[in-house]
Computed example of a mutant assay.
Amino acid sequence: MNSDLSGTSPANHLEAPAQPLRYSAFTNDPAGGNPAGVVLDASGLDDEAMLRIAAEVGYSETAFITDRVEASRRFRVRYFSPLTEVAFCGHATVALAAAIADRLGPGEIVLDTRAGEVPVTTTVDGDGVVSATLTSVPTRSRPALSTELDEALKALGWVPEDLDPALPPHVAFAGNDHLVLAVGSRERLADLDYDFDGLADVMRRHGWTTLLLLWRESPERFHARNPFPVGGVVEDPATGAAAASLGGYLRTLGLVTGPARITIRQGEDMGRPSDLLIDVDPQGTRTRVTGQAVRIV
Rank of each mutant, 00 (worst) to 15 (best):
R205V: 01
D125G: 04
G284N: 04
E187S: 15
A293K: 06
V289D: 00
A238E: 03
S245Y: 11
S6R: 12
S185Q: 10
D46S: 08
A238K: 10
T252N: 05
A98G: 07
S3D: 12
T121G: 06
A25N: 10
A238D: 02
V77D: 01
N28T: 12
L111C: 06
A242Y: 12
E161M: 09
R204Y: 10
R251H: 08
V86D: 05
G254C: 10
M1W: 08
E85S: 07
A190Y: 06
R142I: 06
G231D: 01
T66V: 08
Y23R: 06
P273A: 14
V294T: 11
R295F: 11
G247N: 08
F75H: 05
L212S: 04
R76G: 05
P119Q: 15
R221M: 02
V159M: 14
A243E: 02
L83Y: 08
L111W: 13
A200P: 03
V180Y: 13
L156S: 03
E148K: 11
V39R: 13
V289L: 08
T93G: 04
P219R: 14
V137E: 02
A99Q: 08
A54Q: 07
L51I: 02
R216F: 11
L211E: 01
E217L: 07
W215S: 01
D4E: 03
